[in-house]
Computed example of a mutant assay.
Amino acid sequence: MIIRRLEDKIKQTLQRIPSVALMGPRQIGKTTLALNISEGIPSVYLDLENSLDLERVADINTFHEQNSDKLIILDEVQRKPEMFTSLRGIIDTERRKGKKSGHFLFLGSASIDLLQQSSESLAGRIAYIELNGIDALEYSGALNTLWLRGGFPESLLSSNDKNSLDWRRDFIRTYLERDIPQLGPRIPAHSLERFWTMLAHSQGGVVNSSQLARSLEVSATTVNRYLDLMVDLLLVRRLQPWTFNIGKRLVRSPKIYIRDSGITHALLNIVAYNDLLSHPVVGGSWEGFVIENLLSVLPANALPYYYGTPGGAEIDLVLEFSGNEKWAIEIKRSSSPALSKGFHIACDDIKADRRFVVYAGDHRFTMRENIVAIPIQELMQELLNRH
Rank of each mutant, 00 (worst) to 15 (best):
V372L: 10
A189V: 02
P42M: 09
M23N: 05
I329P: 09
V77E: 03
L234G: 01
S215E: 11
N301P: 01
V207W: 05
V57L: 05
E217A: 10
E320A: 01
D316C: 06
W286L: 06
S111L: 05
I60V: 02
V372Q: 03
R173S: 15
T31H: 05
L234I: 04
H190K: 09
F343G: 05
S101G: 03
A373I: 02
E55G: 00
N324H: 15
V44S: 14
D353P: 10
S202L: 07
S109P: 01
N370Y: 07
S219T: 15
G323Q: 10
A313M: 00
E138D: 02
D75R: 02
L33I: 01
T31M: 00
L87N: 04
L235N: 12
L234C: 08
A123L: 11
E217S: 11
I2F: 13
E320F: 12
P280H: 01
E49T: 04
Q27H: 04
Y273I: 14
L317C: 04
G150H: 07
L52R: 08
D316N: 11
R96V: 12
R26V: 13
S285A: 10
W327M: 04
Y45I: 08
L146G: 09
A200W: 13
L165Y: 13
A34W: 07
G205R: 00
E177W: 12
L137F: 10
N385F: 07
Y139S: 07
F104I: 06
F63T: 02
K80Q: 15
I72C: 14
L52K: 09
G283N: 11
W242M: 01
S334A: 10
W147E: 10
L233Q: 06
A373G: 02
P42Y: 14
S155I: 00
P18L: 12
L87W: 09
T366D: 08
T366G: 05
R79T: 06
T221D: 05
W286M: 07
G283D: 12
F171D: 06
G205H: 01
L233K: 11
K9R: 13
R169G: 05
M23P: 06
A300Q: 14
K332N: 07
F106M: 05
K11L: 10
S86E: 07
Y139F: 12
G311S: 07
P241C: 02
G29L: 03
T31F: 02
A213F: 12
P25I: 12
P18M: 13
V207C: 08
A142F: 14
L235Y: 04
A266E: 03
F244L: 11
L212G: 04
L52F: 15
T32K: 04
R26M: 09
T174R: 07
I331Y: 09
R149Y: 02
D8K: 14
L35G: 05
R252L: 03
E154Y: 15
Q377V: 03
Q27T: 06
W147L: 15
Y139W: 10
N324L: 14
N61I: 13
L146C: 10
R149M: 05
A110H: 05
P241A: 02
Y175H: 10
P241F: 06
K255A: 07
M23V: 11
M83V: 13
N67I: 14
W147M: 14
G247P: 13
Y306R: 02
R186Y: 11
Q66L: 12
W242G: 00
I270H: 02
N50L: 04
N50D: 14
V20H: 00
I2R: 15
P375I: 00
P241R: 12
M23K: 00
S121K: 14
D69R: 12
